[in-house]
Design a protein around this nucleic acid. Sequence first.
DNA 1: AAACCGACGATTGTTCAACAATCTCGCGAC
DNA 2: GTCGCGAGATTGTTGAACAATCGTCGGTTT
Lengths: 225, 225
Amino acid sequence: MTFDEVLADLQAQAKTTKHAETGLWVAAQLRSRIEAGKLKPGSKLAEEALCEALGVSRNTLREAFTALHAEHIVTRIPNRGVFVAHPTADDVREIYRVRRFLEPAAVLWAGDTSMERLSGIIKAARAAAAEGDISGMASANQDFHRAIVDRAGSERLNSLMDQVLAEMRLVFHSMAANPAFHEPYVEDNAKIVELLEAGNLAAAADFLAAYLDRAEAQLLAAVER
Amino acid sequence: MTFDEVLADLQAQAKTTKHAETGLWVAAQLRSRIEAGKLKPGSKLAEEALCEALGVSRNTLREAFTALHAEHIVTRIPNRGVFVAHPTADDVREIYRVRRFLEPAAVLWAGDTSMERLSGIIKAARAAAAEGDISGMASANQDFHRAIVDRAGSERLNSLMDQVLAEMRLVFHSMAANPAFHEPYVEDNAKIVELLEAGNLAAAADFLAAYLDRAEAQLLAAVER
DNA sequence: AAACCGACGATTGTTCAACAATCTCGCGAC
DNA sequence: GTCGCGAGATTGTTGAACAATCGTCGGTTT
């Protein structure tokens, strides 16, 4: 999708929707379009055009920009404007540094374990895999890791994980997506659930850590090209 | 310190200091005064008075407010204004939920270990304890836990930990501070460094986890009064 | 012909003042 | 004594203005 098409899209939204907290609403609109891949990494987000399209003032738009900037979704270059973030190899390393801590820790030390949710996600992932639904597998995978961290029951860890997963989506959008990328992870996730159900937390955490290392290496190879 | 006194203080700062990034500068001014305890939890931060004192527009002040709000340092009540955050028992539980994950994980899985920094902090803490320097012990303690997480080498985990520690300072300000609170932790921290130096990571992590549980219980008892 | 240099136009950074929406407080009626 | 209502005050949001910076397009120099 080109920037102009997104503009028209946003303009349509602006007329139909009420905005309670305008700044947050604008941020949400942009976030969803960036994460859906409609605004590609590197795109410039011109202020005036977006203001007009959304029907908000520059002031409000800039408030949304600061929120998105804090989430690492956009990059600000002083006096140049804001751009959809374009994750570098270092960003990928940072993402996995966080995930290597959060996810194994959540597996090992989570208190209450609601397994139904995890098995439900595995089921959905297998269904998507069966019919070759790439985006279905991708979102099931994100749901899975989100649910792993959610076991910790911490709002802040959840929001950190959400940010990291959002940046992961940007990574996928910024490289030529290998369609088969997510396929092997469906069964890896299933194995983790198995180990968890068997109560073998240490094995689950180890397997997850190795899995994350592998994924990081794979993504780094793809990004550094 | 009363709100009016802080106002006069800010006004003095406003005349002498240059502000490069005005919004961030205002946020920093307020942050430092809140963390120093000059603005007590629950205080209302009136917009007009602060604008005048700092010599900035309401718009700029509100930009600072959103930054402080994202850090959980202030609370926003719609159409009511912003207040210095007043941590509840649930907030304390959330803080320790995060720390129980981050710190033991950092102990167990940190790659490069620069021990000199940790032992330096222990030394400073012991010096402060020797001369009964309460705030010296408090800040050494914060430095210690900050350094533990820093071993992970992740910018995002560091900033999460910084936020949590800032909220911890608010907790201390919102309750009648027990002067002897930090004293026993000086030697607890020292023991963790010992275990780390001996390469016994698992024991260090276990000890740290138990230590955090104890501190949480202690703070909860103090807050729920 | 290629490279350097300066003025112009465009975009962003920052501030201000005004208007609309909502809340608080005090007064009067029941 | 309690409820409802209106005036005053405070916050939410916007639009416009001005300053600062960057990219581009000529023109000049070597």
